[in-house]
Simulated assay, not measured.
Amino acid sequence: MPDSKPTLVLVHGAWADASSWNAVIPPLQDEGFVVLAPPNELRGLESDAAYIASFLAQRTSGPVVLVGHSYGGAVITNAALGGGDVKALVYVDAFIPDEGETVVGLLGGSGSALAVEDPTTVLDLAGYPGAPDGAADAYLKPETVHDSFAQDLPEPDRRLIAATQRPASLVANVTPSGPPAWRTIPSWAVLGTEDRVIPIALKRTMAQRAGATITEVDASHVSMVSHPEVTLDAIRAAAASVG
């Protein structure tokens, strides 16, 4: 019965929206899961996590498997203890921070295509109303999408990502993470080995530190789009662990 299964909540990352899960959601729905893919506001780690925690508290009942991609991994790490009955975490090409760590700090020295001295060589920056001092919206330059973010997707798909990307505030990447939910909640991690945004060595280190069940796939930063079956299998395994 559908109500015997955990609810699956999928949290997108930066430069994306809930449509980044389009290859994953229909198969899970066909298997009887309730799947929810809320917006991630991409404004700051504390406020983004608080929003997702509030969403979990109000929109779910019973056990939850909480899934995060990229920056969404940092969000679920901070949101999972704040609302809902989260029983498992799934990280897809995601940040898995420990307390006090920042996205920028984790990327430093990793070889990431985004860890550059001048961010405007890979990002386009634009102000937005109400932005804190020094904050701006960051968009991936089209060439960054094509070469480093989604290089294993067909060119039309890369062009679509570049055109429809949802920007993230620079503030989100410099906010220290809080106490991590992965210390007390079991986790799974899908790691694209050809990821140029979060290089594989960094992802392995974070996933191993979290004690995650790890699956690697020959894929870019958007493995849930290019190789959705791997993400599906990880979500299924996490769901099966919820008794």
Score class of each variant (00 low, 15 high):
G73E: 02
G178Q: 11
N22H: 15
G178F: 05
W15K: 00
A201T: 13
V171I: 07
G111D: 06
Y51S: 15
H146Q: 11
A23P: 02
G111F: 05
G82D: 07
A53H: 01
D3K: 07
G72I: 06
A162M: 08
A201M: 11
V197P: 01
L106S: 12
T121C: 03
V24Y: 01
P38N: 13
I198W: 10
R158P: 13
T193G: 08
A57Y: 03
T7S: 12
T7V: 14
S19T: 15
E194P: 02
T7R: 04
D195Y: 06
E194Y: 02
I198D: 06
Q165I: 02
G178P: 03
I161V: 12
T205H: 04
D218Y: 03
P156G: 11
G178E: 09
L202R: 04
I25W: 02
A16C: 12
G192D: 01
H146D: 12
T231A: 13
I96E: 06
D48E: 03
A163Y: 06
I52V: 15
A239V: 09
S187C: 11
W21H: 06
D133C: 10
E143G: 10
T184L: 11
D48M: 00
Y139H: 08
S177M: 09
V24C: 00
D48Q: 01
T231M: 07
G243C: 07
P27E: 05
S169M: 08
A168L: 13
K5G: 07
V34N: 14
D85S: 08
G178S: 14
I235Y: 08
Q58F: 01
P39C: 10
Q165W: 07
A14I: 04
Q151A: 10
H12Y: 13
E229W: 13
E117S: 15
K141Q: 11
R204G: 01
K203R: 13
T121S: 12
A94G: 13
P97H: 05
V145T: 05
V34S: 15
V34M: 14
A207Q: 01
P27L: 09
A80H: 03
D218N: 12
R166D: 00
A210R: 02
V103C: 15
D124S: 14
E101W: 09
A201K: 13
V11M: 00
P142H: 09
I198E: 08
D195W: 05
A136V: 08
A37K: 05
P154I: 08
A113T: 03
